[in-house]
Design a protein around this nucleic acid. Structure first.
Lengths: 133, 133
DNA sequence: ACCGTCACTTTCCTCTAGGTACCTACTAGC
DNA sequence: GCTAGTAGGTACCTAGAGGAAAGTGACGGT
């Protein structure tokens, strides 16, 4: 009975085990979600604008993530050699193709209260270590 | 002109800036994706089965992530007090409701070659620092 | 002469997620 | 008596991500 399962599990290559993992790495690595969301939802942004929108991000990390997204072809960077310098970040067509994904995510966020309820229930069952002193 | 943009960016609360961030934290935190994918795609799994399927995960982390997913109501744990002990993990209805999300993800993974191409192009443009010694 | 702005870059430092390794209880099998 | 197998728990340790803060360079304003 379990032999069959064992057989299949041993035969599966590491990466092929989950074909969506690479996508998750690209799109949902730390900080990339709010950046892509902002650019997708509100259009072009300057560096400081992104910094101010995502209030808790530091300029170093923002730069890192923007470079990464630019390299992955999800964002375009436009440099205007003015004074003071001006840089604009825009989402690409490839980035915009994530729209449905974001929509599905936003839709599912309606289930967040169920998650919250599940957490409350779970904590209620396993937390009370203070019971029976 | 830019005044309008500045106005909107300063007025946005930290978390509300990106409504999908909480969902991402729950569903796409490290290791949760392959676990949920496995349970959603191939049904019930025992601990060792998951361990063998996701070859690179350590038992400690697997336990952590499974507890987290159980707490969030995405996974059910069933303990059979046999000898040797047997535990089965199954996806819940709430977890199964992520199906469309995974489908969208899997669909988008067709764009991975575009990402790869973008990376090649980007590296070709900015890498050659060896030019002009 | 100095301040402020923009878009970063650099240095230093902290913190924690995750890895390694060993331990548990229980029984069957040799 | 020793080992194997299951489903973890626990203690220790390290690498690397990310935070804090200061610097840069060109210029416009006062």
């Amino acid at each position: 009975m379990t032999v069959e399962v064992t057989e299949t599990t041993t035969a599966v290559p590491p990466e092929l085990a989950c074909p969506i993992a690479p996508v998750v790495d690209i799109v949902f690595s730390r900080w990339t979600t709010p950046i892509l969301w902002a650019l997708n939802e509100y259009g072009r942004h300057r560096f400081v604008e992104l910094e101010r929108r995502i209030t808790t991000i530091t300029p170093k990390v923002l730069t890192q993530r923007l470079r990464q997204l630019e390299r992955d072809g999800l964002v375009v960077r436009t440099y205007h050699p003015e004074v003071p310098p001006r840089v604009e970040y825009e989402i690409t067509d490839l980035g915009r193709s994530l729209g449905p994904l974001f929509a599905t995510l936003a839709e599912w966020s309606g289930n967040l209260d169920k998650v919250e309820q599940a957490r409350v229930d779970y904590d209620a069952k396993s937390r009370p270590r203070s019971r029976r002193p």
